[in-house]
């Protein structure tokens, strides 16, 4: 149980991880992340990379939708901008991958700002639909532009880092995991400062926020920029991971996937974006495993996998919204609160 917080200065009280237990858990998680590639099979490393990419993108969407209250159904389309930027740079210029990722993030941020411009006039669901429109336009551009390889898309060479070719999950892990961690840390930092507070204020009461000194358009666009930059970085990582980028790689249903991830995880919490993205990435794997188990008794199980996945996906969205609207992060908080008082109150 936790008896009290004994802080002696404001700096300690403003820290991200304030209790000893939190610091221990964090250290354990970091150690686990470092050791994982040496212990896990390529299949598990593949999943870990996929989870990390989705965490990066979901965290970005969470900044825009969970924290700023601007609903976007364009996250997958933004990822495609980053993925194509990285692919084109890698193919035509062969620049270092960190530079390419950065360029992907910045390009996507610019596209995000352009998409965000209507956000001052167009609100709520109208804005969500405007982001669908932007996705349609981007899809059209990518499937008709010679530079992006039309409907065939682009195949790109693997990233190289000091002579090492990064084409296996083991090497890619060392690219994807650190980048994702830095992105998540950045997002957590954002909400310790005035920028993050301004985002939340816009979500809760945009008109009052303006009277309190927050220029709305500027901060809405900033939120769009950060969020789409995150999507672009995630898309760039995705491109290095799969090395084939086509217009069909990022369909609208993926945008819904990221929205579902932050709903299931918990909107407006950093932990929610992480938990939700991992959870939603793992659900299809669990279903696949389950289908494998029942195949001996019911031979058609694998054929039903795709539709069942669709049903489970929908049911998770609906179920969490109705029964646990704060998502997995809230469940986690409940567990923590329980142990704060344990064993004196159970």
């Amino acid at each position: 149980m936790r008896i009290g917080t004994l802080k002696t200065d404001y700096a300690a009280d403003e820290a991200l991880f304030d209790t000893g237990l939190q610091k221990c858990l964090l250290a354990l998680a970091l150690a686990g992340a470092v050791l994982l590639p040496f212990l896990a099979s390529p299949y598990w490393l593949f999943l870990a990379c996929l989870c990390a990419i989705n965490v990066a993108s979901a965290t970005g969407l969470n900044i825009l939708t969970g924290y700023t209250g601007l609903v976007s159904l364009g996250q997958a389309a933004f990822m495609s901008v980053g993925a194509y930027t990285v692919a084109v740079l890698e193919i035509h210029l062969g620049t270092p991958f960190l530079l390419n990722l950065l360029a992907g993030g910045l390009t996507t941020a610019l596209v995000g700002i352009a998409v965000g411009i209507p956000s001052l006039r167009v609100k709520g669901l109208y804005l969500a639909i405007a982001t669908i429109a932007a996705s349609v336009v981007l899809h059209f551009i990518f499937s008709h532009w010679a530079l992006t390889g039309g409907v065939q898309g682009l195949s790109m060479p693997p990233a190289r880092f000091f002579g090492v070719t990064m084409d296996q999950p083991f090497q890619l892990y060392w690219m994807i995991m650190p980048v994702t961690m830095l992105m998540v840390l950045g997002a957590a930092n954002l909400f310790r400062t005035r920028v993050g507070r301004a985002f939340i204020a816009i979500r809760d009461r945009d008109i009052s926020a303006e009277v309190l000194g927050i220029p709305l358009l500027r901060y809405k666009l900033m939120s769009f920029a950060v969020s789409s930059c995150y999507a672009g970085l995630a898309g760039g990582l995705w491109a290095y991971f799969f090395r084939v980028v086509t217009p069909e790689s990022f369909p609208l249903v993926n945008s819904i996937f990221y929205l579902a991830a932050i709903i299931v995880g918990g909107m407006g919490t950093i932990l929610g974006g992480i938990l939700g993205a991992i959870f939603m990435t793992m659900v299809p794997e669990v279903l696949k495993f389950g289908a494998g188990l029942v195949t001996p008794f019911y031979p058609d199980a694998l054929a039903l996998l795709a539709p069942v996945r669709t049903i489970v996906f929908g049911a998770l969205i609906v179920g969490f919204l109705i029964f646990e609207p704060q998502g997995l992060a809230e469940i986690w908080r409940r567990i923590r609160r329980f142990f704060h008082l344990w064993p004196f109150k159970t």
Partner: peptide, 22 residues
């Protein structure tokens, strides 16, 4: 804290890094 927004200087990049100015 939000009340002080207009009188603060932290920009987007400072905020992402946090350590230092922000």
């Amino acid at each position: 804290k939000l009340g002080r927004h207009a009188h603060m200087r932290t920009g987007l990049l400072d905020a992402l890094v946090y350590h230092g100015r922000a």
